Each structure stands twice: as C-alpha cells, then as structure tokens.
Amino acid sequence: MKKISILFAAVVMFMSFGVAKAQKIATVDVDAILNIMPEKIKADEQLKAFSTAKQAELEKAATAFQTEVQKYQEGAAKLTPQQREAKEAELGKTSQQLQQMQQAAQKDLAEKSDAAYAPIDKRINDAITRAAKANGYDFIFDSATRGLIYKAGPDATPAVKKELGL
C-alpha cells in the first residue's frame, strides 16, 4: 500500500511539471493603436462626412414636414371634415416616410461602418497574431477590457505597432 502511495505521489508530481509550464501572457492597448492608424482616421472622417450629409437630408425633410403641419394647423378650421381627414392621412403618410428615411439612414451608416472597419480589424488582428508568434506569447489580452483583472506581464503594444509599421 505504501508503494502505491509513493508511486501515485511521483506520478502526480511528474504530471504537475507539465501543467506548470510558464505561459507568456501580454497585454495590448488596441484602442491606442487604432487611434493612430491612418486608415482608421480616414475611415472615421469618411463616416463622419456621410453621417453629416444624411443628417442634413433628414433635417431638411423634417423641416418641410413641420412647415406642412403648421400650415395645416393654421387652416384646419376652414377645411371640411373630409378635407381635414384627407390632409391628416397625408401627414401621417409623410410622417411614416420620415421614419423610414431615418431607419434607412441608420442602416446605411451601419453598413458603411462595417465595410470601412472590417479590413482595419483584420489588419490589427493579423498584426497581433504575428507579434504574438514573434515574441512567443501564449495569450494577449486587450488592456482596455474590463475582463482583465491583473496586468503585470509584458505589453505587446510596441510589437504590434512595429508589425503595422506605425
């Protein structure tokens, strides 16, 4: 029985050496890298211009609608009930069209944003992978996320910047 206990203890010690292999862990500040990438800065500017143009278009349509509503409210007393009903139906239809325009603008902006940022995300993820392999890191955490509790390991941000040529 004593020999089995000793053998068991030896096997456990042997197995624990394999498990206790030190893993290299690093952090990277993805936001800091993204904020200096020229292609992200350009994409941000293009998306801002697109958003501003869509907003101006929506504001123009909303102003025209408000003017139409105001004209209706001022002249509603002079209209027959059938005319009032027809005008209210027309205004309701215009209101729905405005809502549809706003939803379409939000969808267009989201699609344009996804299309603009997808290659940037791929480029930074590829650079992180290359930096991890080049420096022998087993894990790299984004230092800006809340999931990271303790940060004492090496910072991979400079290595990723080097891979991106920044």
Rank of each mutant, 00 (worst) to 15 (best):
A86H: 10
A159Q: 07
P119W: 13
I25W: 05
Q73R: 14
K60P: 02
A104Q: 09
N125D: 12
A132Y: 00
Q100D: 10
Q82A: 10
E88N: 15
K112P: 00
F8K: 12
L7N: 09
A132L: 11
D121F: 09
L166V: 07
Q102D: 10
K42N: 04
A43N: 09
A110Q: 05
A49R: 14
E111I: 15
K87T: 15
E90S: 14
T157S: 13
K151G: 08
A159M: 10
A104C: 06
P158V: 13
L148H: 01
S51I: 09
D121V: 07
F17I: 12
E90T: 06
N135T: 14
A76P: 05
M37F: 02
I33H: 07
V11T: 02
T157V: 10
L166K: 08
A152L: 04
A116K: 04
E88Q: 14
Q102M: 14
A105S: 07
K60H: 03
R84K: 13
F65Q: 00
A9D: 02
A76Y: 12
F141K: 03
K40Q: 13
I149K: 00
I140Y: 00
A9W: 09
V69C: 02
E59G: 08
G75D: 15
E45G: 03
K40P: 08
I140P: 00
V30H: 00
L148I: 07
T129Y: 07
K60M: 03
S95M: 13
Q97M: 12
Q106Y: 10
D108N: 11
A144V: 10
K161S: 11
M15K: 03
A62M: 01
T27G: 05
A26Y: 01
V12I: 09
D138E: 08
Q66W: 01
A131Y: 01
D142F: 01
Y150H: 09
N35F: 05
K133F: 15
S5P: 05
G75P: 07
K161D: 15
A156Q: 07
E39W: 08
V30G: 01
I6M: 05
A77I: 05
P81T: 00
K2S: 14
P154G: 09
Q99M: 05
P154C: 09
K151A: 10
G92I: 13
A118M: 13
K78S: 15
T94N: 14
A43D: 14
A20R: 03
A89D: 12
S5W: 14
D29N: 12
P158G: 09
Q46F: 04
A127R: 03
E68L: 05
V12N: 13
A144L: 15
E59H: 11
K21D: 08
F65H: 08
Y150A: 12
V160Y: 02
I33F: 00
E57K: 02
A86D: 04
R84A: 02
L164Q: 03
